[in-house]
Design a protein around this nucleic acid. Structure first.
Lengths: 241, 241
DNA sequence: TTCTTATTGTCTCATTTTGTAACAATAATA
DNA sequence: TATTATTGTTACAAAATGAGACAATAAGAA
């Protein structure tokens, strides 16, 4: 679930005690909203990418580092959204299984078995640019459709739900959707993104009118896809004044 | 700033290490938005009410407890809004001054001098019902106008700003403003509350129309204040279906 | 080549929401 | 009894939104 630099680090030295971070990293591909999940060695357990905070690191810096380590991307759109601090969110057995899967047998007072409070972050990235990279505990780091996630450890399902909720409410207050698309996109692709995130259909002409009225879309050129119909324009997000 | 059960608790036993909470407790009185501040013994330093999380306590339970301890109120509207985790937010000198003001001289490795990450909560309470109670470190726990706060320790000014920002964005998405008013209120009082929080004037008739259209206001009776004008209705918030 | 088809961009109109003002009602005071 | 300040209601213009019509057009079919 998390990534200490040395998995056998015996007492968590160099990290803030009892505090972790979990990231819901969103991508968008083929009209599907996806997130990155890790699968731990020899366990069949899936989890959100996570990490710990170094002694000399700001919280948000640690989150940046974590997302960069899993995606290869820098300067990603990243936001803190909630802290998960219920007493029962941590299960010793789960953690012990994960450590055992990595060949580590630990005593009952190992720092990773103690109670953790976790800060949730969500990131929006360009699916086409990310290169998912597993951490030291994991076999894989891959994209999964939000609609068909495998069972997740601990309260990670709840964290995902809360992240999606936050994304939905943020979507129409800020201009963040563009972070999930490549450099250029059509109006239809943008609308698909919004519909997928919000979970319901939008009216085509109204959507186009609204987006264009924001004054942040730059029309570039026609896109010549192999469709039997009029070619749509391509747009680029222009950061405005 | 915080409240261990025994101030001389030498190593923070019984609490989650490195994690604190700070509460921005809002009240509304005489058309002013106010918050509760503590003044520490013999220091002239002001701070937000805060606390620590017990080993066996959920994060939100700890926040409830903290607000109840400072106000005497239970079942308060309370929401987590951000985690403050910059490395430089904690100043040893400030903490040492506070401890010294309480007659405690501590060594450099005292647990209260170590780095803390703090979870910010904001609460909305009925000013007329709260009975502010200082904690063990404080001379006073009192209301201060948001517009004229004394200098605050550490990053507490920043925490207040972020809380207000959150309150503003939440105000028109949820029906939370009522938590700041007494049982019954006039439409004018409700409008004053909104104007004060949002920081700008609203149109009277439009505001009334909008509030009534929500279907959560129950009209009770006329209010016979000593004003040379028509008497306004009193309303009560009715929680709806 | 010409016709068909699917999708796009634009335009129009009805509906709803919002901004703004006008006006009558009324409780205290002069 | 008249005045005054504020409230509740109604009215109307302006803006935003919902929903459809229609021409434009790129690719494939005939």
């Amino acid at each position: 679930m998390h990534e200490p630099p040395h998995p056998e680090n015996p007492n968590g030295k160099g990290f803030l005690p009892g505090l972790a971070m979990d990231a819901v990293i969103f991508g968008f591909h083929q009209n599907q909203l996806k997130i990155l999940l890790l699968e731990y060695h020899n366990t069949g357990l899936f989890a959100l990418p996570g990490g710990f905070i170094k002694d000399d690191e700001n919280l948000n810096e640690a989150a940046d580092r974590m997302v960069t380590e899993r995606t290869g991307l820098k300067e990603v759109y990243l936001e803190q959204f909630y802290v998960f601090g219920n007493r029962d969110r941590h299960h010793k057995d789960t953690l012990r299984t994960i450590l055992k899967g990595n060949g580590l047998t630990v005593t009952d007072d190992h720092w990773l078995l103690r109670r953790f409070v976790s800060v949730g972050y969500y990131a929006l990235i360009d699916f086409t640019k990310a290169v998912p990279i597993p951490d030291a505990f994991s076999d894989s780091c891959d994209w999964y459709d939000l609609g068909s996630l495998p069972p997740l450890i601990l309260d990670h399902r709840h964290i995902v739900a809360k992240a999606l909720e936050t994304l939905q409410t943020h979507l129409d207050r800020k201009l963040i959707g563009f972070n999930l698309l490549p450099e250029t996109f059509t109006m239809g692709e943008l609308q698909n993104l919004y519909e997928t995130i919000l979970g319901h259909k939008l009216h085509r002409t109204g959507f186009q009118r609204k987006m264009l009225s924001l004054g942040v879309l730059e029309r570039i050129a026609k896109k010549w896809t192999g469709g039997a119909h009029k070619a749509p324009y391509l747009y680029r997000f222009s950061a405005g004044s």
